[in-house]
């Protein structure tokens, strides 16, 4: 070879007689092995346990139809995830829209503010909400001091508190895909709509909004799927009274040592999530929505 710009792995491979394909697998192998040993294998075991503990059969799965508490937990899980998703979409859309259409030099700062929460632990953020929302938390104390209420309002250990804190945690996951989508939308379409007689709102509604549909759908999918399996925030702000499915699983395994039911619920959650994703795949280009963000 006479060129000096061949890339090092290819050059090394040529020297040692390893094919490109060999190198490819060598690079992928560590991650692949870790994945199989620490992720796929335990998953298979969970799957097995759900059918074998305490005895072989579908006994654990019967609980899905028979057990009131499990059904309640599933309903709560879906409801909290749905409400969180809806609120995140509305708020996230507004934030993304502001960032890409404000036309000033604040864009960088605004982007940083969206990403900032990623650097703070979810645990800490959830505790912060407890400080704010508790019976003698900042909000209740202030309202009482202002004379607006007499007794503290229950703002946590209920779905309100859980949803509020979850929206806070999930918002960046809604903003990022929508922002990526809006970034690619040319301003000229809205101008054209205005020029053709549409009011500011008309241009937004008929021309801009339809173009942001892919962003909205991928944000919805991302937030909903993450919310379904969310643990820390519901556990802390629900205070044991808003049992979402992941907390229910923890409870079964840690407190009651009922591995069979816990595993069954894990498998159920996995299947439900897969169903949601497959259903969404009819509307969203998943590869684009989940892998090619930013």
């Amino acid at each position: 070879m006479t060129t000096t710009t061949i890339d090092p792995p290819a050059a090394a491979a040529a020297r040692r007689g390893l094919s490109d394909r060999g190198w490819y697998w060598l690079f992928v192998a560590p991650a692949l092995i870790a994945m199989v040993v620490f992720y796929i294998w335990p998953l298979v075991q969970i799957f097995g346990i759900s059918f074998t503990e305490p005895e072989f059969g579908l006994g654990n799965y019967a609980a899905l139809v028979e057990s009131r508490p499990i059904q309640t937990s599933l309903v709560i899980t879906f409801r909290v995830a749905a409400v969180t998703t809806l609120l995140c979409l509305v708020l996230g859309y507004m934030v993304s829209y502001a960032i890409y259409n404000a036309q000033h030099r604040m864009v960088g700062v605004m982007l940083a503010l969206v990403l900032l929460p990623f650097w703070i632990s979810v645990l800490i953020r959830s505790f912060a909400w407890i400080v704010l929302l508790g019976r003698s938390g900042v909000v209740n104390d202030s309202l009482i001091a202002l004379g607006l209420i007499e007794k503290p309002i229950a703002m946590m250990h209920n779905e309100f508190g859980v949803v509020l804190a979850m929206v806070h945690v999930m918002l960046p996951f809604a903003v990022l895909p929508m922002m990526a989508n809006m970034k690619g939308i040319n301003r000229a379409y809205v101008d054209a709509a205005r020029g053709l007689g549409a009011s500011e709102f008309g241009a937004f509604w008929h021309v801009y909004l339809p173009q942001t549909k892919p962003g909205i759908l991928s944000a919805a999918l991302l937030v909903f799927v993450l919310s379904l399996g969310f643990y820390i925030t519901p556990a802390l702000l629900g205070g044991g009274r808003v049992l979402m499915i992941s907390e229910y699983i923890t409870y079964q395994i840690q407190e009651l040592l009922r591995w069979g039911v816990g595993s069954m619920l894990s498998v159920t959650l996995l299947v439900m999530t897969a169903v949601v994703i497959l259903a969404a795949a009819r509307f969203v280009n998943l590869r684009k929505a989940l892998l090619e963000r930013g």
């Binding site: 040319n186 000229a188 379409y189 101008d191 054209a192 709509a193 205005r194 020029g195 053709l196 007689g197 549409a198 009011s199 008309g202 241009a203 008929h206 021309v207 339809p210 173009q211 549909k213």
Partner: peptide, 21 residues
């Protein structure tokens, strides 16, 4: 006067046909 009240037709440089319609 805002553009939508002027009743002028405009053909934009890149045409700006609405891609969703």
């Amino acid at each position: 006067m805002p553009p939508d009240k002027r009743d002028f037709g405009m053909v934009f440089q890149g045409y700006a046909l609405f891609p969703t319609m």
